[in-house]
Design a protein around this nucleic acid. Structure first.
Length: 728
DNA sequence: AACGAGTGTCATGTC
DNA sequence: CAGACATGACACTCG
């Protein structure tokens, strides 16, 4: 229980540190998965830094650092740790540079078609199961691969293709590597499923007639793509719909979305796009804050069962060219997105060839090769977003102006810039933080990666192999070069058979710091001096040898920290020698308690000797414990550092995706607005006159129908209002 | 001389 | 309860 509590405590502390280091509040709750990416542990390996027990319970595990719970066999462990640290050093060097590349590449994908695609594809995934960037990138990859051949002939599509590829920035590729790939297939299958579904639509689209349209629209209703959107606005319109039943002239009662089709069917000659701009949109510019956009986007994503919008549909759609030339200035992603609407328009109106659009090559309406196109941009999908805002936004707008871009409010460049700036600011802020972290890492790497350091206390094989200064426990039981106070040991070294007289069948795998040896007699004097000068925390310290002043001529520069280590480590050796302890400190420290006691019983030791031996053992074990503790601290710091960077990358990725989604949403709104205007412009009353956009507005009902309602009746939802509607 | 890093040691707590 | 272990705190050396 304590271990668990300690683990949780450390986790909370680390999380707190992370949040504090992040500086900015991040809604990680909604983003972070509950588990860490496996790559984290794959790279870092299981660390002892998080737990205490884990460090000693690894023997026999698959990770297999093999630390004996009693005789701490740390050499292999730390050798492995050293290698892992080097790997981490490589990672530290690589990842930040990759991220820099990612910023440079990605920022320009403002108008990428795949942004909208990404936005739509996100909805097909189960967001909680699949990391956002992963899904988007996967979709991009799939789409990119899938349409490779098709785009060869379309020069204009190269832009979209490139843009799509731009989205596959290195950081997301790293994400892909960092994330379990298990979810990809589901995503792909879902994608394929939608493609199949789109094919059905396409086949339906080849036929003409209102019944076909009905079928298609029924299919649309069955997909459930419009369910939530309808529920917001059209539910209130259901009552109006019932009133309109007698006045509506729909051919079929179950006609889900008849208005556009009928418009096109009945009076093609009287319709014209010239009226499009003059329409009064029911969803005229509603000033929306980014938060609203975000909320609406989330609503959209949750409501719609959108499939990834394939960029194949971005072929130069003549219909698109004819729909609203003003939109042609949109590039890349906007084109594609609008074409999506255009396709839906074609689905609505298979008889659109009657539509007097000179630039519209009619055959392509039904035979368009945009098989990948889906119903993403169907009216149903946008009604929930757009129609609600139309209720109160059209009062005093004339029919001849301001309607060119009714959604200009939300599409305001300032808004987009604000979003982009905010995003960039956040990202750059983090990049700076990362840069500083990188610098700190580079600066402190030598200090952190002790394992890779050939420091005097390094347990590395190169050091331990220098047996000239450090003998094994078995080879020199009588030598003071043997220092068993340090717990680092190496399994790589051959465990020689224990033949010393003190060894009672115990073959510890311990080794020691090589420079712990202090065979130089001159050191003893300094040791004694140090022992005398320094504060003495030892218990029952045996009276030391007569102190001698250290040689004042000893050059301080020649001293090394290793010498201090040697002296520190050799003090007990010195004392043991002084007290004539008949066995090595190595054994004193590392033998299990049973064997240690047995060892003591084999020799008739004085009380002072026994005290010294016990103090040596206590200090030696505590020394190892302190070293392990410090190792754990370093590992914890490194892990926290890695986690901070990982979270920063995740945060940046999600911010980027958020911005893309917002832009995609705005584009879709704009496109739906255009479609609305066009449809409304085709409406004619019984006398063949167009409806006044100031007096009427199209509304979407819960059952998929589109009804024309007087604006004065919208708010009241009155059943008494008279309505006129014509199918076209 | 001050400072930080590294280390050893002690005291204390936990298991 | 003894032993092992972990860890904060302190002191020391060294660069």
């Amino acid at each position: 229980m304590l271990s668990l509590k300690k683990y949780l405590t450390e986790g909370l502390i680390q999380f707190t540190i992370l949040l504090s280091l992040m500086g900015v509040r991040v809604d990680l709750d909604s983003y972070l998965p509950s588990h860490l990416p496996p790559l984290h542990e794959i790279i870092l390996g299981p660390t002892s830094a998080y737990t205490q027990t884990q460090f000693h319970s690894l023997r026999g595990t698959s990770e297999g650092y093999g630390v004996h719970p009693k005789s701490v066999d740390l050499d292999q462990f730390f050798t492995s740790r050293r290698l892992l640290s080097r790997m981490r050093a490589l990672d530290r060097l690589q990842v930040p540079s990759t991220e820099l590349d990612a910023w440079l590449v990605h920022r320009e994908a403002e108008s990428s078609v795949s942004s909208a695609q990404t936005g739509s594809s996100r909805s097909t995934d189960s967001p909680q199961n699949l990391p956002s960037s992963e899904s988007s990138i996967r979709d991009s990859l799939e789409n990119d691969q899938g349409r490779g051949s098709e785009e060869l002939g379309a020069s204009a599509q190269s832009e979209t293709t490139d843009l799509s590829k731009e989205e596959i920035d290195p950081i997301d590729i790293l994400w892909l590597q960092d994330i379990d790939l298990g979810a990809g297939r589901e995503d792909f299958e879902s994608h394929q499923h939608h493609k199949d579904h789109e094919n059905v639509w396409e086949s339906l689209g080849d036929s003409s007639g209102s019944e076909d349209v009905d079928q298609r629209l029924q299919v649309d209703g069955e997909t459930g793509e419009n369910v939530p959107a309808e529920s917001q606005t059209a539910m209130s319109l259901a009552e109006c719909l019932s009133l309109l039943d007698d006045t509506f002239q729909f051919d079929s009662p179950e006609f889900p979305a008849p208005a556009p089709t009928n418009i096109l069917d009945t009076e093609p000659g009287q319709t014209g796009l010239e009226q499009t701009n003059g329409l009064l949109s029911p969803f005229l510019p509603d000033i929306e804050t980014p938060l609203d956009l975000e909320e609406q986007w989330q609503d959209l994503m949750s409501l719609m069962d959108m499939q990834p919008m394939d960029i194949n549909s971005s072929d130069e759609d003549p219909l698109y060219l004819s729909m609203d030339p003003s939109l042609q200035q949109n590039e890349g992603i906007q084109q594609t997105a609008f074409q999506g609407c255009s396709q839906n328009m074609a689905l609505y109106s298979p008889t659109m060839e009657q539509f007097p659009i000179p630039e519209s090559p009619l055959p392509q309406l039904s035979s368009h090769n945009s098989t990948e196109l889906n119903s993403t941009f169907g009216f149903t999908n946008f009604s929930g977003i757009l129609f609600p805002s139309q209720q109160n936004s059209t009062a005093n707008v004339t029919a001849t102006n301001v309607l060119q871009d009714p959604l200009s409010g939300i599409l305001d460049e300032a808004l987009l810039d604000e979003i982009s700036l905010m995003e960039l600011a956040l990202e750059e802020g983090f990049s700076q933080m990362q840069a500083s972290q990188l610098q700190e890492e580079l600066d402190s790497d030598s200090g952190l990666s002790l394992d890779s350091h050939q420091s005097p206390v390094s347990p590395s094989g190169s050091e331990t192999s220098s047996s000239s200064s450090c003998s094994s426990s078995s080879s020199s039981s009588s030598s003071f070069s043997e220092e068993g106070a340090v717990g680092y040991s190496s399994d790589s070294e051959i465990v020689e058979p224990e033949e010393s007289e003190e060894s009672i069948g115990y073959q510890p795998e311990y080794s020691k710091f090589c420079r712990m040896s202090s065979e130089d007699p001159s050191r003893f004097q300094r040791l004694l001096y140090l022992e005398h000068v320094g504060h003495n925390h030892t218990y029952n310290m045996v009276p030391e040898e007569p102190e001698e002043q250290p040689e004042p001529t000893l050059a301080r520069g020649n001293r090394r920290s290793s010498a201090f280590v040697d002296r520190q480590a050799g003090r007990d050796e010195q004392r043991a020698r002084a007290m004539k302890i008949p066995f090595s400190n190595d054994k004193i420290i590392n033998l299990p308690v049973e064997e240690f006691n047995e060892l003591l019983t084999k020799y008739q030791l004085t009380e002072a000797q026994l005290c010294l031996v016990r103090d040596i053992r206590r200090r030696g074990k505590n020394k190892m414990a302190a070293q392990n503790c410090r190792k754990r601290k370093l590992d914890t710091i490194l892990n926290v550092e890695q986690e901070v960077k990982r979270l920063g990358r995740e945060r940046s990725s999600q911010l980027r995706e958020k911005g893309e989604n917002l832009r995609s949403l705005q584009r879709m709104k704009q496109e739906v607005e255009s479609l609305y205007q066009e449809v409304f412009s085709q409406l004619r009353d019984q006398e063949g006159r167009p409806y006044s956009p100031q007096r009427y507005a199209l509304h979407y009902t819960s059952n998929g129908n589109i009804v024309l309602m007087p604006r004065n009746a919208e708010g009241q939802q009155s059943r008494r209002s008279e309505r006129k509607d014509r199918r076209k």
